[in-house]
Design a protein around this nucleic acid. Structure first.
Length: 459
RNA sequence: GUCCCGUUCGUCUAGAGGCCUAGGACACCGGGUUUUCAUCCCGGCAACAGGGGUUCGACUCCCCUACGGGAUGCCA
């Protein structure tokens, strides 16, 4: 059985790259009949915030990436780390070091100046110092030999032990550091497989040293390629949206987000798939090694594909919150019909909701280009259409379409010359469902009102 | 500086030495369908970072270089 974990530090909202890491961990555990766990790494007391923890947990829950056990918090497990540290001290694998930050800084500068790799030189290693408020606990790292990282995606990665220095396990205030907690928790939670970002590759041999010193079993690793922004830099705040919430608010469904993220670094024949399809087909060994750029255009396409797979009832239901948000309620006239008429107009739920606005609210303005091209010079047409429409008894799409043909014949105009001015009068732009249906949706009274307004506008 | 990871169309990728005249998708461009827009359909553009090897043969293996990223923290 495989046990994976997602271990975010709550120093910011749930990041889209973090979601992908969580997703791959989740999928992997499902494929192996295993467990997926969440661990909040909140040892940085300065930057960790409860609200971020809540955001992360809620985000994953919304996506359906749920942990099989209650999430654990490192801030609540000090006892575990204390015991592990004790074990290392007793076995002689760790030692107290009283070097001051200033002293270390000087040491590193000197090393750099001499063209050497700046690293702790182990000067306190054999001093036999005792614990005090001035000492940190360091791991006595093997000085020779090599450490091999077994990576599911990249194969074996070798590091020379002499490249690694004696890292700090316990700070002078007694608090445990990231590497130390990470290793202890992975063991305590019986993690078998660590799937995380490739920025952790060079951390891995350090963590392996801690594991070995503690007598823990080896783990499997999979280091995922990074997710980058359009400028090929790490996806960050500068690239517009990075948080899951932002995409959720933009009206991308969880299926769309999962599908899009899974395709960053992995692929199959199929482009559009569900989480279950992913569990059936995903293979961590096929994950790409190189970083991937997050492309919103592709997400838009994936979104329209998922949206078009929804039946009408589900679509109405799922767009509800976005309609509410722009103050259009389900009891509005022709609510469902209008949404369904516009459902393929845009790629995201929010944009689709926005596109129905002309049906529910008075027009704020006419599209300038359309006005120039179609509305101006159409006064006579609109006046004629107004009269004809006013005398139409049966306000149905079929009847309206027939009337539109009559108008066209009357003026002997090509289709756009009749339809586009009317569209702009009704919608404000030249975009709408078929005109007969659009008129039906607006109803007689509102249609006539808008045509009248347009006539006045032309002046 | 040193160590580690990476590099196929603009983007996501297929590719496990001959199947590659390097395939697909998104985007883009052109055409068709649609009374408009969108959808949909058809077509087009477009890439193996560079240089050396190994081999009868290299996108695939090896080396070097370039570029990008990570580590080198009492951050995670």
């Amino acid at each position: 059985m495989k046990i994976t974990r997602f271990a975010p530090s709550p120093t910011g909202t749930l990041h889209i790259g973090g979601v992908r890491t969580a997703l791959f961990n989740y999928i992997f555990s499902r494929q192996h009949n295993g467990l997926f766990l969440i661990r909040i790494e909140d040892t940085d007391q300065e930057r960790s915030k409860k609200e971020f923890e809540v955001d992360i947990l809620q985000g994953l829950q919304w996506l359906g990436i749920e942990a099989d056990q209650e999430p654990v918090r490192q801030s609540e497990r000090s006892e575990l780390y204390r015991k592990a540290a004790e074990k290392l001290i007793n076995s002689g694998s760790a030692y107290w070091c009283n070097c001051t930050p200033e002293e270390l800084d000087e040491m590193r500068k000197a090393q750099s100046a001499a063209g050497k790799k700046p690293m702790y030189d182990g000067r306190s290693r054999n001093l036999g110092l005792a614990r005090s408020s001035e000492t940190v606990l360091r791991l006595a790292t093997p000085e020779n030999g090599e450490t091999i990282v077994n990576d599911l995606i990249r194969g074996e990665i070798k590091f020379n032990n002499n490249e690694l220095d004696d890292l700090i396990l316990l700070r002078s205030d007694g608090s445990p550091t990231y590497h130390f907690c990470n290793v202890v928790d992975d063991y305590e939670q019986k993690i078998t497989t660590v799937i995380r970002g490739e920025d952790h590759i060079s951390n891995t041999p350090r963590q392996i040293h801690i594991q070995k010193a503690l007598g823990y079993p080896d783990l499997e690793y999979a280091h995922l390629p990074l997710v980058l922004g359009e400028d090929k830099k790490r996806l960050s705040k500068r690239h517009a949206a990075t948080s899951l919430n932002a995409y959720k608010e933009m009206g991308y469904t969880k299926e769309t987000i999962i599908n899009t993220l899974a395709l960053l670094g992995w692929s199959t024949q199929e482009e559009i798939f569900s989480t279950n399809d992913l569990i059936a087909n995903f293979d961590i060994k096929n994950v790409q090694k190189g970083a991937a750029i997050f492309d919103l255009k592709r997400m838009d396409w994936i979104s329209s594909q998922h949206l078009s797979n929804l039946n009408n009832d589900d679509f109405i239901k799922i767009i509800g919150p976005f309609m509410e948000e722009i103050n259009i309620h389900a009891d509005a006239q022709n609510y469902e019909a209008i949404i369904l008429a516009m459902r393929t107009s845009k790629p995201s739920l929010r944009q689709i909701a926005e596109s129905t606005k002309p049906f529910f609210f008075p027009l704020e303005e006419y599209d300038p280009k359309g006005t120039e091209k179609f509305l101006k010079g159409s006064k006579e047409l609109l006046e004629h259409a107004f009269d004809k429409l006013q005398n139409l008894n049966e306000w149905t799409e079929t009847e309206l379409d027939m009337l539109l043909i009559q108008i066209r014949d009357f003026f002997n105009y090509p289709v756009p010359k009749v339809n586009q001015p009317l569209r702009i009068a009704l919608m404000g732009t030249t975009m709408s469902p078929s005109l007969g249906y659009t008129l039906e949706l607006f109803g007689k009274e509102e249609s006539l009102k808008r045509i009248q307004t347009a006539i006045k506008f032309i002046g």
